[in-house]
Amino acid sequence: MSNVSNKPLRLDRYLASVTDYSRSDAKKLIKAGEITVDGLVVRDPAQGVAADAELALSGHSLRAASSRYIMLNKPQGYICAARDRRHQTVLDLMDEDNPERLHVAGRLDIDTTGLVLLTDDGNWSHAVTSPQRKCWKRYYVETAEVINEQAQLHFSRGVFLKDDKARTLPAELDILGERVARLKICEGRYHQVKRMFGAEGNLVTRLHREAIGDIVLDADLAEGEYRYLTAAEVASVQK
């Protein structure tokens, strides 16, 4: 997959997307005659560039980088953000070029562990996070109090959370023990799982995301480790 669509892009934007140069630096290189398109020097940063055009910088061929799709086993204590003044972020766990271009497709709280997906493909990310696409997220949950069996019915109907105007979408609760369950939801409201159990008068003491759609957290990944998704895993999320 490519970051460049079939629609022509401005030359300066294309150059910034396939190199570490900023848009302003890309413009300077173009105006200086350092860039060729299909073998011809182009000095206009606004010129349109086709997806299959042959670009070169100082004689070196340039290609649009493939989109990245990554799974990370998130430990506690890290937040799902690009940067934060007080806490480490999931990007601090990664050794990647241009990490600032990656974003989290479905965030987890600082004390929640498990599967986090990161990508620079906005359409794919939207398919993961949009409630309308019903990409189910599966969580392992431990609670302070015994889980009431009525919670299964309540969750399947949707519950009203404090300060929210609409019920949650139907969710699936599988009670594994007195204080242990698995929950599947297709939304990502603020602290949703904790608030759903809170609406039942219960407190979540441990929360771990096991799967997103058909993508299951790799058992071989230790906390803090990550790997690229397989082609089949990427394709399991329909854009």
Rank of each mutant, 00 (worst) to 15 (best):
Phe160Ser: 09
Glu210Gln: 14
Ala181Gln: 04
Ala231Ile: 07
Arg179Thr: 09
Tyr140Val: 03
Asp97Gln: 15
Asp218Leu: 06
Gly224Ile: 06
Lys134Gly: 03
Cys186Phe: 08
Ala127Ile: 08
Ile175Val: 05
Ala211Glu: 11
Pro99Asn: 12
Ala151Asp: 14
Asn202Arg: 09
Glu233Lys: 00
Gln132Asp: 13
Ile175Gln: 01
Gly177Gln: 08
Gly188Phe: 06
Lys194Thr: 06
Phe155Ile: 10
Val128Ala: 04
Gly224Met: 11
Leu229Glu: 11
Ile212His: 02
Arg189Ser: 07
Val128Ser: 04
Gly201Leu: 05
Ala231Tyr: 00
His154Gly: 07
Gly224His: 05
Arg138Ala: 05
Val90Gly: 02
Ala105Asp: 14
Arg182Ala: 08
Ala151Ser: 14
Val159Asp: 07
Leu153Trp: 07
Glu223Gln: 10
Gly213Glu: 11
Leu161Pro: 01
Leu169Ala: 11
Thr113Leu: 02
Thr112Pro: 04
Leu169Met: 13
Arg189Asp: 06
Leu93Lys: 03
Asn148His: 09
Glu210Thr: 13
Ala219Cys: 07
Thr113Phe: 03
Asp163Arg: 05
His208Asp: 01
Asp214Leu: 11
Ala166Pro: 00
Ile215Lys: 00
Thr119Lys: 01
His208Phe: 14
Thr230Gly: 07
Thr143Pro: 06
Glu233Gln: 04
Ala105Cys: 15
Leu117Tyr: 13
Cys186His: 15
Ile215Thr: 07
Glu200Met: 15
Gly201His: 15
